[in-house]
């Protein structure tokens, strides 16, 4: 499968990184998100909020990369929260059950409040 890159805007915000992927998160582009999460895991404060507002479409690969990120960050003593207002993505979290136990909120700040205590 040919890999494609999507732009991921990374910003630092009070003790955590905010990742803003811009474009579809699917099997072709998910490598970019995986790499971006991977580089944060190696840092001192592995806490990430992924903002999905600029992601029009996300399939099971995109969802898998997010959930894989949750697991890897928690193992490293950090966490991953999700900022999302898109109905389509929220429904995916609800259907799969991934919404339980992961901080999902409409804004980055609210999502960050739900980080698990390390």
């Amino acid at each position: 499968m040919a890999q494609q890159k999507i732009d991921i805007d990374v910003t630092e915000s009070g003790g955590y990184q905010v990742l803003r992927p811009e474009g579809d998160l699917d099997v072709y582009t998910v490598g970019s998100l995986r790499d971006a999460i991977g580089s944060v895991i190696e840092s001192d404060k592995p806490r990430i909020v992924v903002d999905l507002d600029s992601v029009p479409f996300m399939d099971s690969s995109g969802l898998g990369a997010l959930m894989g990120g949750v697991r890897r960050l928690r193992e490293a003593g950090g966490d991953l929260a999700i900022a999302c207002t898109r109905e389509q993505h929220l429904k995916l979290f609800t259907i799969t059950g991934f919404g339980e136990g992961v901080s999902i909120a409409p804004t980055v700040e609210e999502a960050a409040k739900g980080f698990r205590a390390s």
Binding site: R34, G64, A65, M67, G68, R71
Partner: peptide, 8 residues
């Protein structure tokens, strides 16, 4: 399976 994979 790895932590990114799941099945519905």
């Amino acid at each position: 399976t790895d932590p990114e994979s799941f099945t519905t």
